[in-house]
Design a protein around this nucleic acid. Structure first.
Length: 579
RNA sequence: GCGGGUGUAGCUCAAUGGCAGAGCUCCAGCCUUCCAAGCUGGCUACGAGGGUUCGAUUCCCUUCACCCGCUCCA
């Protein structure tokens, strides 16, 4: 029951979006093209408003965030360093009997660690050590086992197999000699085939694999790749951020749910670089503990990654509410330690209650120094920030203090499974005032945001007129901030020249500031309803009284109430409501 | 990619192996002093390709797209 209601509400929305010019199927005259969508006159205004609102709030109104607009096709090494080239491929197996598709990596989840280890134990020896190294799941398995094989065994043939192995299922089969059955029905599975989600293209006139390049699958990596240039030209120091809005491309296996998962989509991403907690502790003497009482309204000097992460979750929620998604419409989901990517320390998904289910709208991840460290390794360029106050603070410490600090950091690192060499290298640099900053990444999908805002705004309500006739009014209750059309201006009638001219004059005046719509056709009620479907928050009607006293009527979309207001007051009021 | 379902006008739906229809929308005109009014006129469709047939929107095949599941997380 609930499902069919939900489905019909999405269908009604899809229909409205097409009818009113929000969203069209890509290449529709040729039958459409799966996974691609076009935004029509109202849709592109909506999207632009969402992006502008994000940009204004995230970049313009902050002194600690800079913008970037990087190219979509970048040096392929970037995707090598980020890991997308190796692991953005999902190897899949299909069951020959029940035809279900299983991600080869997920074998790990389905069969559990103990089964896998049982198979590996006779081949690799110490199962306890294996388990320790293989804390990561799925994708991390093969490289980790490679390390096990190198360090703990002298079996060259296994070493070779491991090196060639891309997924857990194949690995299991190679090591144990057992074909894993379908986890659903026990049937025989096909060979795993890689599904690389990156779009490949060729740069230059020669169609040669050596010239392969990729359309970016996320905007984030460009920010890391241009990190040094932004740092050296913007006079920013940690904590500070770099923001980017732009298209990304993923060759999804199954694009679904209208514009929710498409192959070409737009992202709004911020990489916010913060000092490592170790640096904060030296500078401030302590790192603030995150508690439910922590005041997140203004950043604190002694914030570590946990407070910064919570701060950005809070900031993003406030933005969503301000732009029309009430707090009750979304869910804040903290990923469990199990679900986190191996480099992530924490990740919050903000999920929206879409008609087709609760689905992710945006993610706010604490990614540690993983990305910059990767680019440092692959490019050979130091990604360190120099922090003079930190250097001075270290200099001011006594020899004993420094030794105690070194011991404490080394102990922390050891507890996190890091080697002593890595810890010492980090501390040496830290004491010189240098570190690779850690990053908090709020990453939102523009198209998903637009869909959520459309779903949230859509309403059908029954209105009853003076004569007692009731009918359905369809209305999009967008926040005025993102509404495609801000104001519509109507002459009450069009066959009275003075009234018409006055309305044109007001229209032209308002148009200088906002996207304003002119409509003179049909009865006034019909024109109001057209604007209701477009989500226009305000309608201004010029009537005979306007000619006498200069006032117009301002009609509110949601209440349908009207007030008389002078043209000057109207401008001030709109400025207040729309900015 | 696999299984199931669906494709007729901008939208919602009819009918039919032999001229494809309606309501709403949209456009033009008349009229109109505030919530889809009225009158007149108008535009617009069988997803694409192939086959069977004298003739296919209808039957068959292929393909494309959408919806539901497997899968996916911006």
């Amino acid at each position: 029951m609930e499902n069919s209601d939900n489905k019909s509400s999405l269908d009604a929305l899809v229909s409205l979006c097409k009818r009113r010019g929000f969203i069209f199927q890509s290449s529709e005259i040729y039958g459409g093209f799966a996974g691609f969508w076009d935004y029509g006159p109202l849709g592109c205004e909506l999207k632009k408003n969402i992006k502008d609102s994000w940009w204004k709030e995230t970049v313009r109104l902050r002194e600690d965030v800079e913008g970037l607009d990087a190219s979509i096709i970048m040096h392929p090494s970037i995707w090598k360093a980020s890991g997308h080239l190796d692991t953005f491929a999902d190897p899949m197996s299909m069951c020959k009997a029940c035809k279900k598709l299983v991600r080869a990596d997920q074998i790990w989840d389905i069969f559990g660690e103990s089964d896998i280890f049982a198979a590996l134990e006779p081949l690799l020896g110490d199962a306890g050590k294996t388990a320790n190294w293989c804390k990561g799941r799925g994708r991390a398995l093969a490289p980790n086992l490679l390390a096990v094989a190198q360090a703990e065994t002298r079996l060259p043939e296994i070493f070779e197999k491991l090196a060639a192995c891309a997924d857990a299922r194949t690995l299991y089969t190679l090591l144990s000699g057992v074909e894993l059955p379908c986890p659903h029905c026990g049937g025989e599975m096909t060979e795993p085939r890689p599904f690389n989600l990156m779009f490949r293209t060729v740069v230059g006139p020669i169609d040669d694999p050596a010239n392969a390049a990729y359309l970016r699958p996320e905007t984030a990596q460009a920010i890391f790749a241009q990190f040094l240039n932004v740092v050296s030209t913007s006079r920013q120091a940690a904590p500070f951020g770099i923001a980017q809005v732009g298209k990304s491309f993923r060759n999804e296996v199954t694009p679904r749910n209208y514009i929710f998962r498409s192959r070409e989509f737009e992202q709004m991403e911020l990489e916010f670089f913060i000092k490592p907690d170790e640096a904060v502790e030296i500078l401030c003497g302590n790192v603030e503990k995150l508690t439910p009482e922590t005041d997140l309204s203004e950043p604190g000097a002694n914030w570590g990654w946990e407070c910064w992460h919570a701060y950005w979750v809070d900031q993003r929620k406030k933005w969503l509410v301000k732009n029309g998604l009430p707090e009750t419409s979304f869910v804040e989901y903290w990923q469990t330690a199990d679900e986190l990517a191996h480099y992530a320390r924490a990740c919050v998904d903000i999920q929206y209650r879409f008609p087709f289910g609760v689905q992710e709208l945006e993610g706010i991840a604490a990614r540690s120094d993983f990305d910059l460290t990767q680019h440092c390794k692959h490019s050979g360029k130091a990604m360190d920030l120099f922090d003079e106050p930190l250097k001075l603070a270290v200099k001011a410490m006594t020899e004993e203090d420094r030794a105690a600090r070194r011991a404490k950091i080394a102990a922390d690192w050891a507890a996190r499974g890091k080697t002593a060499e890595a810890a010492n290298a980090f501390i040496d640099k830290l004491f010189e005032g240098k570190y690779i900053p850690h990053v908090i990444e709020p990453s939102a999908g523009v198209d998903r945001m637009a869909l959520a805002m459309l779903c949230n705004a859509y309403a059908e309500e029954t209105v009853t007129d003076d004569k007692g006739n009731s009918e359905t009014r369809t209305v999009l209750r967008f926040s005025p901030l993102i509404a495609p059309i801000k104001v519509a201006v109507f002459p009450l009638v069009k066959n009275k020249p003075e009234l018409y001219a006055k309305a044109r004059e007001i229209f032209k005046g308002l148009r200088r500031h906002w996207n304003v719509f002119w409509d003179e056709s049909g009865a006034i009620g019909r024109r109001y309803r057209r604007q209701d479907e477009a989500g226009t928050p305000f309608c201004v009607t010029v009537d005979f009284q306007t000619l006498d006293d200069g006032t117009v009527t301002l009609r509110d979309r949601d209440t349908m109430a009207q007030e008389r207001i002078s043209v000057e007051a109207l401008r001030a009021k709109l400025l207040d409501l729309l900015d």
